[in-house]
Design a binder for these strands. Structure first.
Lengths: 192, 192
DNA sequence: GAACCCAGTATAGCGGTGCTAGACATCCTG
DNA sequence: CAGGATGTCTAGCACCGCTATACTGGGTTC
């Protein structure tokens, strides 16, 4: 029983990932409106009910894509922070990387922040990748800064606001760099 | 022909508003998912096609509700700014009023910022109420500040980010005041 | 005053949605 | 090799946004 059931479980996990990546590719190619359960099923070459044996519903699929996105965003931010020439420029680098991510993968960003998902953010069971993203902002402040978490929250809020307001054309995309410089100048850690 | 047709036009305008307020009330009571064209038609006691004689589609109805929201937000922000004891506390008052509005009317705020609408924000034809909201932030900075518009954009972005991130439970709602104080302290106009 | 006309309304229906019950096949187990 | 569990598909439900078509009742004209 073990060998075959193990293989089945592998196949199942493989198909699980297949559904997630197919949903993401379809969304990035044609937008989330095009991601219907029928089209998704057709794309993975299974019938609709199979999707429901892997996920509780469409929202859960979107949530799985979003979770992937948080994982990628976390590494993206970490790379930017660690690649900064000096500690003082870490925040600026992370902020730029954040907006890059949001504009480069709009569909993914949409799944992470504006689409209805099954992701729970209630309390201690925050998904680790989401926490990892937040921690990248926190890490831009000195450890002895008692309010570094609060600062990180505000920075993240500002970046998210800039991302969605510029994506919907409510603020002009032209002065992106100036906004980022301003944000960095005003919200960065005060040097010791 | 004039008297009756004028009355008809009045009736029509009245019904136009009836649809908008019905959509808004339904959304605020049961969320936007519950606002379907059928339920909305039933609520205004007309049949579905009547909605389409007033609006291009559901998105346009949401857009009309959103436009109402921007008008209300503008006056709300103006009241807060003008009610500030001294010019130096205007920004703080406006920011507080903004978050109050977002948390007090979540469905309305959703229509204004996250739902798909027909509102055009492309270029010069920005809807006046939206421009009025933005101008309230600008007015919190001195007129000789050359970058007051840029500052206003960043403040608005931060507030919007705080509104949606706390509404979705990604940042804790507890430290709201501290975040606002921090935002005001760092982003306010530098005194002359 | 009667015939006409037309704006405005409702009925009924189209193609699509997310989701699921039941029939069916396929493979492991005893 | 039969029995049973596992897994998949077909078919369909209730609902969605939206619209073509039929109808009706008031205003206009002869």
């Amino acid at each position: 029983m073990s060998a075959t059931s193990e293989r089945r479980e592998r196949d199942r996990a493989h198909r699980h990932r297949l559904i997630i990546t197919a949903a993401r590719e379809l969304a990035e190619a044609e937008g989330w409106d095009a991601v219907t359960t029928r089209r998704l099923a057709e794309r993975v070459e299974y019938s609709q009910p199979v999707l429901y044996s892997h996920f509780d519903g469409k929202d859960a699929i979107v949530g799985a894509v979003a979770l992937d996105g948080f994982g990628e965003l976390a590494t993206h931010l970490r790379d930017a922070r660690q690649g900064a020439a000096e500690p003082g420029s870490a925040l600026r680098a992370v902020c730029g990387a954040y907006l890059d991510f949001a504009t480069a993968r709009p569909a993914l960003y949409q799944a992470m922040f504006t689409l209805p998902t099954d992701l729970k953010f209630a309390s201690a069971d925050t998904p680790p990748p989401l926490r990892a993203c937040f921690d990248e902002f926190v890490a831009c402040y000195r450890a002895d800064n008692e309010r570094r978490e609060l600062h990180a929250e505000v920075v993240w809020s500002a970046l998210h606001g800039m991302a969605v307001l510029s994506a919907s054309g409510r603020i002009p995309p032209s002065w992106r760099e100036e906004r980022l410089d301003f944000l960095d100048a005003r919200l960065a850690d005060t040097p010791a």
